[in-house]
Amino acid sequence: MSPFTTDSLGSLQIKQHSKGYRFSIDPLLLAWHIQPRPGEHILDPGTGCGILSLLLARKQQNLRITAVEIQPELAALARHNVQENQMGKTIEILETDMRLLSQKQLCGPVDRIVINPPYYRQNCGRTNPGSEKATARHEIHINLEEWTKLAASLLKTGGRLHCIFPAERCAELLCAMNLCKITPKNIRNVHSTAQSPASLVLAEGILGAGHGCSLAPPLILYKTPDTYSDEARQILWPENETFLHSPVDRETKSK
């Protein structure tokens, strides 16, 4: 059995490991809610195989995206995916620890930071024995307080932070953003079904903005346990494109 699969995501071809790190629905949900403007510089820390950067570059070609990955094998996969999808002029892959990033290294502050961060505190719950999944799921290399501070140090004033995070940690997220002077401006809860509690929250904050936050209608993923909602189908099948040949990982935080 090959250690890799190549999955079709509409026009994108995504190579990823057969086991270990495989992206889930989370970056698709996040990318759906981001409307990049032409000419923006976007930072994607913890890019994994590059999926979030690729989705944004497909939305808007006139971007400069810096995607950062600390794990060498994943960084190599991200470089491969960027080249295979002919997005080398838009996306640059940096193999480094995101904690070491500076405005100088990025040639100035960035317009947006998009992050699908680790969801769980390091000693909370079972840590996956695979290092890639462990790093994706648990705050091993960087925690909530650290990545929000990092975002504040790298964004321009008025720049935007976009993230997806567990709903049960929403209060922690909003507090961490506020402490870094990133004002939460848009919040949307994600529910598996209309009857289930929120499992995820999509949040957008602006560095140095005034108070005032909008709460969007909830995003419901499934009409029934086996049927996606209309909006979920739009996210997973944009413009009638074909989604993954292999089913998307439903597990919250396969990442």
Rank of each mutant, 00 (worst) to 15 (best):
F23A: 13
D97V: 11
P36L: 03
H33N: 14
T5E: 10
V82E: 06
A75E: 04
M87I: 09
Y21S: 07
L94Q: 10
H80I: 06
K133N: 13
I42C: 06
N123G: 00
G50A: 01
P3N: 10
D26K: 06
I115A: 12
I51P: 01
K15M: 13
L55P: 05
P118Q: 04
K104N: 10
K133I: 15
I14R: 01
H41P: 03
G88K: 07
K104V: 14
Q86C: 08
T135M: 07
K104Y: 00
I14Y: 01
N143R: 04
K104R: 13
M87T: 09
A57F: 03
G130H: 15
T47R: 04
L144E: 05
Q122N: 13
I91W: 01
H17G: 14
A76R: 13
I25C: 05
Q13N: 10
S11P: 08
K133R: 15
R37D: 11
R79C: 12
R126Q: 13
N85D: 09
E73C: 06
Q16T: 04
R64F: 02
L106K: 04
L100C: 08
L74V: 10
I34S: 09
P38V: 08
T90Y: 00
L55D: 01
E92M: 06
Q13K: 14
P3C: 00
A134D: 06
K19E: 14
Q61S: 15
Q60M: 07
R112D: 08
L28F: 14
I113L: 08
T5K: 09
L100N: 11
A75S: 13
Q83M: 09
S53N: 06
P72F: 03
S11K: 14
I25K: 05
P109K: 02
K19L: 12
R37L: 15
D26N: 11
Q83F: 00
A57N: 07
N116F: 06
L12G: 02
V82T: 14
A78F: 02
T96Y: 00
V114F: 03
T90I: 15
K59G: 02
S18D: 10
L43F: 03
T66Q: 03
S24E: 10
R22G: 03
E92L: 10
P36V: 07
S8C: 11
L77W: 00
G50W: 01
T66Y: 02
S2P: 15
H17K: 14
N81F: 00
G10L: 02
V110K: 03
G48V: 04
T96R: 07
S11L: 13
S11V: 12
G48N: 01
Y119Q: 08
P109F: 01
I91D: 02
P45V: 02
G46H: 03
I14C: 01
A67T: 01
L56S: 04
